[in-house]
Design a protein around this nucleic acid. Sequence first.
DNA 1: AGAGTCTTCCAAAGCGCTTTGGCTTTCCTG
DNA 2: CAGGAAAGCCAAAGCGCTTTGGAAGACTCT
Lengths: 340, 340
Amino acid sequence: MNLKQLAHMLALSQTTVSRALNGYPEVNEETRRRVMDAAKRHGYRPNPSARRLATGKSGMIGYVLPTGAAVDIDPHFVEFLSGLGDYARSHELDLVLSPADADDQETTYRRIVANRQVDAVYISSPRPQDSRVALVSTLGIPYLVHGRSEGLDFDYPYLDIDNEGAFHEAARLLVQLGHRRLALINGDDRETFAIHRERGVRRALAASGLTLGERHVCSVAMTEENGYRATRRLLEASDAPTAIACSSLIMALGVVRAVRDLGLTIPGDVSLIAHDDVFPWLKPENFSVPLSTTRSSIRLAGERVAERLAARISGLEEGARGEVWPVDLVVRGSVAGAPA
Amino acid sequence: MNLKQLAHMLALSQTTVSRALNGYPEVNEETRRRVMDAAKRHGYRPNPSARRLATGKSGMIGYVLPTGAAVDIDPHFVEFLSGLGDYARSHELDLVLSPADADDQETTYRRIVANRQVDAVYISSPRPQDSRVALVSTLGIPYLVHGRSEGLDFDYPYLDIDNEGAFHEAARLLVQLGHRRLALINGDDRETFAIHRERGVRRALAASGLTLGERHVCSVAMTEENGYRATRRLLEASDAPTAIACSSLIMALGVVRAVRDLGLTIPGDVSLIAHDDVFPWLKPENFSVPLSTTRSSIRLAGERVAERLAARISGLEEGARGEVWPVDLVVRGSVAGAPA
DNA sequence: AGAGTCTTCCAAAGCGCTTTGGCTTTCCTG
DNA sequence: CAGGAAAGCCAAAGCGCTTTGGAAGACTCT
């Protein structure tokens, strides 16, 4: 059932039917009702390919997925996706993932916008002076950055959490508990979130005249194994920290294992706070010692990103609005006063 | 730069240019070279919307993503996606995720094939008599099932791992080590993979005249917390098992924690084998006691699914070919002889 | 009553590609 | 050299929608 047939059976022109369906004003309300009705009754659905060719709108939002044998997709992605999908579903939006060589995403971005394959894109895991956001902004397609870049000479729309504030609060608490030597087990420090977190820790320490030792901050891919290794290295050194801030729950698993392997305890010998993106399958309160966390639901972020993208597509949102969500500091058993 | 312009500047018809580009035979090789050359030089890329409208082919593969506030996307998905994306990239395929109400995916399937939005779809986490595979097969779009259904009155193409064999081997090993009371901590037993695994365990036990006690098999969402709870329940009972087979590494985390909480040890008091889908961020060899696993890379499966879908799209693969991958049993420190 | 203004609808021109059907031209074959 | 086949190219008709530029009729106003 296509427009032509529908129009014919209503004894109307395609023009009128199309306009009736798309809510244009120049059609009699009575006629519109008739059209709407017939459309519903016959299950008419405009062919998206045709509509896209005519309008250039696709009803999809795009994401360039960095791939490659050596590239691991962040497990957080799936939670983010849950939220995004949840919103997208209720608005009949689809998400298209365009796999790209991790080292050459530009080609893919150019392709998907040149081809008008998607109405909007979002960018995740941005870095300072991220070339993708510069690119996309010149390409002139609605977009949203999940996270923040830095050092760009223009403003851009984003949704981020207050990573600096979160880790500032975490570190401040640890300092107040008497800790003098903190360590930070961070994610890839080429990404802005990691930079912000480190900044937060440093600021908190500085406020008490402390510093984050060169060897007390490490930046690694967020795996259990790396959490373990980093912790071993930290705790086996002569100036071992008495408290650790950690950028992910998965790494925290490794931290806990390392601490145990060394015959130490949490929080007796070392306090631990980790960032929790809120996974359904791994909860900080269920760690052997309930884990203190900085908590922010990445799933909700996904929903919000979808919502704002939809708003931008329909022109309801414009300009370079930045949105920063506060992060909860949830204190559980894994922190205590510094050991004597 | 569109076809018309290109044709005009080559002083050829659109027909010929189109044919030259798409490798049709009825065009002079010399002409084809000229066309190809000009196309490359001017960076001509056919507009996919137009092509799609004309051919009905979209160059995308689809996946219906069950969503909802209560629905959690499986974290395995992201690894599968890595593989799929890796292959898709090298073949210029995009992946479109169509979010759907988890309880009504049919509508969405119908929509994406009626709209010709995708050239093929894959179905994951199939259940016995899965209505989705019946639906998709009648809809007449190329598809592939990742996993297997059961009790369908027709054949279908799939890629699965030998879940039954894997858990059969795992259980057989445990039995050989003297264990008489095994337990299985399984995933959702409405899904075929879980059924197969249970079947494998039962078959191994039966071969030695043993059975899997009613209370020794549990079927839960695969979270750390559920692994923990199940293990506590199992081990605190009077007929506590001396060996546990577990359907996921994430649940195994909970198993390990529960065992430890109870003051027991692995493998002294209880042996443990878990299934490992191979995550980059959580490795069985790094468990406090290195974990024995049945191992199969879900990432490779993703690649293969993409490969076969591409083959089916281009007509290179046909019919209901099933493909079952063997699963490695990797023995590490978490298994030992049954306690006296 | 005539001019101007809405209102409501329509025919037809795209959007950029593929593909059908046909038209020349060249090349054999007997 | 006539007749037929094959090669190489083209014009034009879709694919199914949106949108432009009217046009016809109804209504208001002077």
